[in-house]
Structures are given as structure tokens and as C-alpha cells.
């Protein structure tokens, strides 16, 4: 008698738990499309790369191009700017990592690793989005003659490295390459 009672209870328990689990998993599965639809869609994700003509940029001038909806700064730096960045001791840097998409993720934030590389040190290409909360910094301003973000006062140096203010990281260097002497491809 008691044995049958027991098996009845466990069977009912099993059904309760199974139904409950199916309901929870089912609800979660049904909810997912409603959340996931908000994420970047296929057309946004089809991140085409762009090609930029930079031959006309004299030393000391920059241009801003739009890539994946964000501004990208391309600057042909003056020798003084390069020297100022090269002379900065690594100990003065708030963020010691290069944040260069073309280099290993632990590459140090030396001037050459921030720039287009050996013999192309004059070129610097960076995503123009402040690493604090996303404003676009202004060029050739601020305490270090590099970039200055007006939103909450972040100062970047001539290599786009964060030196002062609330931003935690150096400006991001996107994946890019020179496809000819005067043309770069970003992305």
C-alpha cells in the first residue's frame, strides 16, 4: 500500500518538475528572439572595409573618415609631435598597452607601436571615440598637444595615449594597412 503511495508521489513530482522545467526553458527560448532582435543586425555587422586616399595629407594635417558609424582620425604627424611622444617615459602612461588592432594584444604603448610602424612613424590612425564615454575628441588640443575630449576632460598625447582625465584607455587603433604609398585600407 505504502509502496504504491510512494511511487504515485514521485511520479507526480516528476511531472511537476518536468512541466516546470519545460515552462522555464520554453519561456526563455521564446524570450530570446525578442531580446536578440535589438542587437546589431546583419547589415550593420557586414562591416565593409574602407579605402582612404592619404597622399594629399601634408605633415601636420589630419582627416576624419567614417567607418562603422564611427569617426576615424588619420594624421600625418609633424617631427615635433613624433619626438614629443617618443620622449615620453613609459612610466608616465596611464594605459601602458598599445591598443593596436594590428599588433599582439599585450604590445606596449610605445610611440612606434601606436603609429603605422617603423619608417611610417609619421602616420597615426585611430578610432576617434573617447574611451571614457564615447565623445569625439578634438585634434591638436589639450595639455599634451594631441587630442582633448571636451565631454569630461580627457587629454590624449600626440600618439593618442591617455595622459589625464577620466578615460581609462588609449584611443583604439583599428586594423588597417597601407595598400599603396598613398592609400590605406581600414577594416
Amino acid at each position: 500500500m505504502s509502496a504504491t503511495d510512494h511511487s504515485d508521489v514521485t511520479r507526480r513530482d516528476f511531472l511537476y518538475v518536468a512541466t516546470g522545467t519545460a515552462a522555464v526553458v520554453g519561456t526563455a527560448a521564446a524570450a530570446w528572439p525578442f531580446i536578440d532582435q535589438m542587437r546589431p543586425d546583419a547589415s550593420t555587422l557586414a562591416q565593409s572595409s574602407i579605402e582612404v586616399e592619404v597622399g594629399s595629407l601634408q605633415a601636420g594635417s589630419s582627416l576624419v573618415v567614417k567607418w562603422r558609424g564611427k569617426p576615424v582620425f588619420v594624421r600625418n604627424r609633424t617631427p615635433e609631435e613624433i619626438k614629443a611622444a617618443q620622449d615620453t617615459p613609459m612610466a608616465d602612461l596611464k594605459d601602458p598597452i598599445a591598443r593596436n588592432g594590428n599588433l599582439p594584444s599585450d604590445a606596449p604603448a610605445t610611440d612606434v607601436d601606436r603609429s603605422a610602424g617603423k619608417d611610417k612613424e609619421n602616420w597615426i590612425v585611430m578610432v576617434g571615440v573617447c574611451t571614457h564615454l564615447g565623445c569625439v575628441p578634438l585634434g591638436q588640443q589639450g595639455d599634451f598637444g594631441g587630442w582633448f575630449c571636451p565631454c569630461h576632460g580627457s587629454h590624449y598625447d600626440t600618439a593618442g595615449r591617455i595622459r589625464k582625465g577620466p578615460a581609462p584607455m588609449n584611443l583604439e587603433v583599428p586594423v588597417y594597412s597601407f595598400i599603396s604609398d598613398t592609400k590605406i585600407r581600414i577594416g
Binding site: 531580446i35 535589438m38 542587437r39 546589431p40 543586425d41 550593420t44 562603422r68 558609424g69 564611427k70 571615440v129 564615447g134
Partner: peptide, 17 residues
């Protein structure tokens, strides 16, 4: 952040969201 923006920066999907 990308869920809210619907992309990598403030753009049309952000506005419609």
C-alpha cells in the same frame, strides 16, 4: 551597450529602439 544602440554607435537602430 550594443543591445541598446543596435549597432556600434548611435544611429538609426538606436533611434527606432
Amino acid at each position: 551597450q550594443q543591445l541598446l544602440l543596435g549597432g556600434f554607435s548611435v544611429d538609426n537602430p538606436t533611434l527606432t529602439h
